[in-house]
Design a protein around this nucleic acid. Sequence first.
DNA 1: ATACTTAATTTTGCATTCAAAATTATGTCA
DNA 2: TGACATAATTTTGAATGCAAAATTAAGTAT
Lengths: 223, 223
Amino acid sequence: MNVRMDAPIIRRSLHDELVERLQRLIIEGELTPGEKVPEKELCERFNVSRTPMREALKVLANAGLVTLTPNRGASVTAVTVDDLQEVFPVMGALEALSGELACEKITGQELAQVRALHEEMVGHYKAQRLPEYFKTNEAIHLAILNAARNDTLAAQHQMLSARVRRARYLANMTRERWDKAVAEHEDILAALEARDGPKLGKILEKHLKNKLETVSEWLKANG
Amino acid sequence: MNVRMDAPIIRRSLHDELVERLQRLIIEGELTPGEKVPEKELCERFNVSRTPMREALKVLANAGLVTLTPNRGASVTAVTVDDLQEVFPVMGALEALSGELACEKITGQELAQVRALHEEMVGHYKAQRLPEYFKTNEAIHLAILNAARNDTLAAQHQMLSARVRRARYLANMTRERWDKAVAEHEDILAALEARDGPKLGKILEKHLKNKLETVSEWLKANG
DNA sequence: ATACTTAATTTTGCATTCAAAATTATGTCA
DNA sequence: TGACATAATTTTGAATGCAAAATTAAGTAT
């Protein structure tokens, strides 16, 4: 991908780092669905032995990003409509909860941060910079999640988010969808500023539902 | 524990089997929260080398059941009172979703099964048989979860459930709490039979909130 | 004794090795 | 040539080996 991604790994436990890097490779599509994961190549690329690499693959398998077939190694799990229809509702419930909790607990500073991210995102939208839009969008949802101050919730969310993010990278949005998504984000910000937890929860849940529709449509047409 | 649990492992990949067995050790309380996981002993016990054992621990760590401290190995994730305040809301959200989905998808047969379990549970309640009551109670929630037909949801729920299980069943209920819990279960059954998803969702969420209160009170007094 | 070093032991993280399974290559015969 | 059998190679799953870190034990000085 680039120099930073391939840089030799130094800090903390290797498998942990590998989980993160592999996740990125999968989410961002360098490893494509159905493809066999080239264990050996990746080991060489990241300059690690097979042990931590395999540990990481087990974790990713548990998270549903990779499928392990006995005696036949790992392959990137295909994104199917069925799979998404499972994950999105669960994510919706988690995001709704994160919104509710965030409204109770968010600090003024954090709120300002979200507002800033929102403005930034709208800027990307107006300039039609999709990758930057995605990134900022993600940052907003993450900021809300963190504001909820619930590590358990964050952990659960993190586990599932990879599958969702992957789907999002896959599918491009139509213009109308994008307009709608931004409009929803205006509502999200408003509810957060009004600290209306139930409302924010509902909006976020709906937001996810719409996202599922977008992606499903795309998959039906292309995938 | 017993012969079956300690029997040498044969079929499928070791780490997969180990994930399951370790999970059971944790759920059944043989490995208690906060306790350091004796990697070496467990390897000897299950007659496997450290490699698959460590792979399994990584997976469990990712799921939050154990905590990995760098260079210091694994310990069963401790559940403090504060943690319960974290976990229960998440469980509540997941249960609410399971209720909503179950209302859409439950079959007549499954519904009859739930009804039967409910009657059985009420019997235990009337006879004040607490352990049996708990067991049947759990079976009901599990039946609803399965009726939701969402493996992702079930997996997430199971992880959290494993973590709080001890706390849940450790705490004794006061008479009033118990009365209330049974009353709520009547509502649960009614909503399910009426296939009123949103209502069932709300009841289940409330039900979890009350359970958290029960447990918190008990912990404050006793634990 | 008690606190503080420092040495012995254990535990941990990762690399390497080894056997079994799967895949690919090679050879045989119709 | 092409279908099949068999041998060579690669890949996979798991055990073992090894260095670094952490824990425990044993001294030492106050």
